[in-house]
Design a protein around this nucleic acid. Sequence first.
DNA 1: AATGAATGAGGATTCATTCAT
DNA 2: GATGAATGAATCCTCATTCAT
Lengths: 192, 192, 192, 192
Amino acid sequence: MFEKYNNVQQAVLQTTLQIINEKELQATSMALIAKQSGVSTGSIYHYFSSKEDIINELYKGIVKFNGEFVTSGLDTDEPVRIRFERAWKKVFELCMTYPLGFQFIEQYSFSPYIYDSSKLEAYEGGWCGPLAKLYAEAIGQGLMLDMEPKQMVQMNYGSIVYLVKGHLKGQFNLNEETIQSVIDSSWKAVSR
Amino acid sequence: MFEKYNNVQQAVLQTTLQIINEKELQATSMALIAKQSGVSTGSIYHYFSSKEDIINELYKGIVKFNGEFVTSGLDTDEPVRIRFERAWKKVFELCMTYPLGFQFIEQYSFSPYIYDSSKLEAYEGGWCGPLAKLYAEAIGQGLMLDMEPKQMVQMNYGSIVYLVKGHLKGQFNLNEETIQSVIDSSWKAVSR
Amino acid sequence: MFEKYNNVQQAVLQTTLQIINEKELQATSMALIAKQSGVSTGSIYHYFSSKEDIINELYKGIVKFNGEFVTSGLDTDEPVRIRFERAWKKVFELCMTYPLGFQFIEQYSFSPYIYDSSKLEAYEGGWCGPLAKLYAEAIGQGLMLDMEPKQMVQMNYGSIVYLVKGHLKGQFNLNEETIQSVIDSSWKAVSR
Amino acid sequence: MFEKYNNVQQAVLQTTLQIINEKELQATSMALIAKQSGVSTGSIYHYFSSKEDIINELYKGIVKFNGEFVTSGLDTDEPVRIRFERAWKKVFELCMTYPLGFQFIEQYSFSPYIYDSSKLEAYEGGWCGPLAKLYAEAIGQGLMLDMEPKQMVQMNYGSIVYLVKGHLKGQFNLNEETIQSVIDSSWKAVSR
DNA sequence: AATGAATGAGGATTCATTCAT
DNA sequence: GATGAATGAATCCTCATTCAT
């Protein structure tokens, strides 16, 4: 998940992600990260300048990974509707396959602990932009409502996020069929 | 916002909500709460058993408040479509009027810091249940898709949440008109 | 020695002074101060804002004490020569009676660890000013060289300091007789 | 300043002296020394056995340098008074030209961080001994008070040190003229 | 000889909580 | 009930030192 980082950094980021999801940022001490990652605190500080830095790298790393995951295979000549479906299926797949990353981003994208610069970088590197472009294309073809593309992306994304959240919380179950109908609903929501 | 609590408790809860939104749970110390609320730490511990307790009361209090806010005026004989619209407009109004509460719930509804019992209580006292009932009614009338009502509520709620988040983050602006079209879209998404 | 401070503060300052003299600032940890003073680290931080703060309060407290010690009984009508002698005898007495304070000031009056504001406050509250006034009086009476009074005070003080240092290092011994002759020499040095 | 050491050692010692004067021993980390001197920590430990060792070598090196600087040209047949004057002028020159070394010695000659062996070596290699010999000669010629020569040297040195300190602190300015009169005063102080 | 990554004990400081007043 | 001083474990982080390369 964090290919651009070296081994030590990867171990630290992975471990941190895990602990935060289990215990909350508050209870995620450097000592615990060191112990569970098998990297000494001294070494951690050799590769990260602070705990904040770790969290922010984590944030940026996950968003980048998510962005690449979702937008891969989106750059084709196929009809908009096909790419629309593929993209959101990718999002579902992402959330189900990497729930830790998903939850982390969900919980901390509003946190003051994440620098504005990280949020900005995330926003630009994520999949929001590419998807908005797809939506703009759809608007151009008269397929979608004449709304701000980014807003529609957010709307559709929100639906998915909340279904995934309900699923992860165990409030209900998501299967292939449900996912398909959610995507259909999403299309209906924004289509003309 | 916290009517069932006494003055001291209200001051503590209000202050805590504010600080957490500004500074994150991590940086919200009891000393700071005491100072800003004008209540001594000793007194705080007279009314709350621990810091966790404060946060959990806060969580439950806000969810309860939100639930009452959204479901008020929903118990009428008007057509489903009208009540649907009124409910979601209330949700928008809630998010815009009480952004602190909104953000707090968003950020901590997944947090291990919130007891499962609080989450359960929240789920029952919130507006999810009543809205799901409305949706079930709509299904019965053949107006909505034959999907799990709770899932559809989540879907629609997710759209709204993400639009509000985008708005609060300053990514775009929400006005009356946009809100209306979002509600229309939401209806389209779940309607037959 | 630190009357204007409360009991806890006095204990901390006294202990700190002792440890620094034994072990050097570097090796004077808060944990050690806490242990030896019988005050918990938490309490120390209740009364002092940081370790730097302790050291600076120590510095200012000692200089103030020294200033009052030396200048007491200097404000009489007796001849300059008498008061000159009394003052420097007081300085000797001070150094011999409170060697810890003496050495601390000597070692740290140049240290970047001491704030400039402390140094300034020290300079004004110490005994340099009053003594310089006495010297000015002597110059006015044609008894002393026509030199900057402060410079002459420094000169005379330096002689004493270095004798005391030699004494404390065990390089030689200072007795009543030696002290008397040093004061006579000092007078000779600056007199006309 | 540290001719008997090799290039690497010189770089380390020079850098250390600088940093200590700017930042205090406490804040003088090996990492900082390594960085600023351009020598890796590994290499530093090849040439010095510990941080203490560096500081002590520094101490001894400076004292040695100072001793040679001051006593050079003292071994002549000229009258005592002439050599007396030349010696103290050299001391002034030393302090003004190498203030870092001067301040370092001043601040650490009492420090527990400096080994007793270093202090002893310093005492023997410094200029105290040679000057004391000159003073003894003066006593023999009936020119000086019948006091312990070392004590008189200390007295005179103290005067100078404190004037230089006042000068370095910016309390007043030292010029050629002042220096001359200080030396005259010093002679008066110890002469018969 | 030279490097600098790695170590982990120890540093200053904070903080939830208690309890005497 | 109310206060806030006191506690000391736990926090983040630094640093002298080592050692594989």
